[in-house]
Computed example of a mutant assay.
Amino acid sequence: MAEEGDVLTNLNTNPAANGADTQPVAGVISQYVKDLSVENPKAPESFQWNSQPEMDVQFNIAARKVNEEVSEVELKISATAKTAEGIAYIVELAFCGLVGMRNMPEDQMHAFTYAEAPRILFPFARRVIADAVRDAGFAPLLLDPIDFNGLYINQLRNKQAQDAAQAGGEAAAPTGDEN
């Protein structure tokens, strides 16, 4: 017999204790190379060049909803090695991850999508870039780590400053009814 303070008698008073899925959860479901392009336009001559290449590395983050709980986060990286003799190589990568999020506020989902998910995906994308450059016949390109959380915070601050400037500009604009 259950006593009055027995946990089993109070199962219906707390839905979370009864197995309800109410806790926030987020994580990477899978990751994959969506697109990879490697160009070695001046091979084999480029293997004889002695000048240090000038590197141009660009990256971008994109996301799209797959369904209510899953989004695809895409980390795009482009690396071009240029020397006085010409372009040694170009590598372009679209590395994606399927990210699942449930029971999270919208602002936390946005932060996970554009800061945390890219941070998780980046080491794998970095390896793909390094392998692609090495397979093209050059020393592997080891990209420096990127502070995605810091970039995300800076982007939010910049957007807030732009929004405030636009709101201030609109408030100061004449309405035409002053006369």
Score class of each variant (00 low, 15 high):
Q52D: 13
N179M: 12
T13E: 14
Q23I: 08
L121Y: 02
H110G: 09
V57D: 12
F124T: 14
N149D: 15
H110W: 04
T175H: 09
A84V: 11
P174L: 01
A117E: 13
M1V: 06
V25G: 01
A2M: 08
L151N: 12
A26Y: 12
A139F: 01
Y89C: 06
F112K: 04
S71C: 09
M109L: 08
E178C: 00
V70K: 05
R126S: 06
Q160V: 09
A130E: 12
I146W: 11
V28Y: 04
S37Q: 12
R134I: 07
I61R: 07
P118D: 05
M109I: 10
A171N: 11
L98E: 06
F138W: 06
D21P: 14
I87H: 02
I29F: 01
V91I: 11
A111H: 14
N14L: 06
A125N: 09
A84H: 11
D56T: 10
Q162G: 10
P41Q: 01
Y32E: 10
A26C: 08
P53C: 01
A173D: 07
A130H: 10
V57W: 03
E116L: 03
A172I: 13
N179D: 15
K34I: 01
S46M: 07
E45L: 00
Y114C: 02
F59I: 10
I146N: 08
N154F: 03
N50L: 06
F95R: 06
F95N: 05
I153D: 14
V25I: 09
A165K: 13
E72A: 00
F124I: 10
A172K: 12
E178M: 08
V28G: 01
A130D: 14
L8N: 11
N154R: 12
M101H: 05
V28T: 04
G19L: 02
Q160M: 06
E54Q: 10
L121I: 02
V28N: 02
N50V: 06
Y89D: 09
S78T: 13
W49C: 08
E72T: 05
F124W: 14
A161E: 15
T113L: 03
I120M: 07
A139T: 14
Q58I: 00
T175L: 03
V33S: 02
M104N: 05
F124C: 05
D131K: 03
P41M: 00
Y114V: 07
Q162D: 15
F95V: 04
M101I: 03
G150D: 13
K159Q: 15
V73S: 03
L98W: 07
E170P: 14
K82R: 05
F122R: 12
K42I: 09
E92S: 03
V25H: 12
F95L: 02
V128K: 03
F112T: 08
T13V: 03
E3N: 07
D56I: 11
K159T: 08
L156A: 07
P41E: 03
S30V: 05
N154W: 11
P118N: 08
A81V: 09
R157D: 15
A43E: 11
K159V: 02
A111W: 08
A115Y: 04
N12Q: 09
T9R: 14
Q52A: 00
